[in-house]
């Protein structure tokens, strides 16, 4: 455990090396670390706290505020919009089929509030890009693609 923390400290401080060590850079810092691990566990929070010179509790408080950092499984998240316009176009079934299809894969399928693509519903956000007019087949392909990637 001790060595794991040391390794994370090294990795995190390298990731944050060129960021100004200011409180206002905390959100950009959280993004960098999150996209490295797809996870913000206590060890990473500790490392960010050390690197940025911001108390652990403050880093935790900010990290835990934002929905996109809430990914305790550490799997690559795929967010399926389940809000009104996407739901009218079957996104709740899409979400269910995705969750079944993703079992045992390194991908986790989650419901999400409005992704802002109501005109091309249903939409999903794969953690990096948004895809629109998504079909169950397209989602299944995305899950399989992640698996073999």
């Amino acid at each position: 455990m001790h060595t794991e923390q040391a390794a994370i400290n090294v990795r995190v401080s390298a990731l944050l090396e060129d960021l100004p060590k200011e409180r206002s850079q905390l959100l950009p810092a959280l993004w960098r670390v999150f996209e490295e691990y797809w996870l913000l566990e206590p060890e990473m929070i500790e490392a960010i706290s050390n690197a940025m010179g911001v108390p652990y509790a403050e880093v935790y408080g900010v990290a835990s505020f934002y929905a996109l950092f809430d990914n305790p499984e550490g799997c690559r998240p795929i967010y399926v919009c389940t809000d009104v316009m996407c739901a009218l176009r079957g996104s709740e079934d899409l979400l269910k089929s995705g969750q079944v299809g993703a079992k045992g894969t390194p991908v986790s399928i989650k419901g999400a509030p409005c992704l802002g693509y109501c005109d091309e519903a249903p939409a999903l956000f794969d953690g990096k890009v948004t895809k629109t007019q998504v079909t169950q087949d397209a989602l299944a392909q995305l899950i399989r693609g992640e698996k073999h990637a």
């Binding site: 809000d83 009104v84 316009m85 509030p113 409005c114 802002g116 693509y117 109501c118 005109d119």
Partner: peptide, 11 residues
């Protein structure tokens, strides 16, 4: 930070 349900014009 356009996140209001049904809103996507800024995007």
């Amino acid at each position: 930070d356009e996140s209001e349900l049904g809103t996507f014009k800024d995007r």
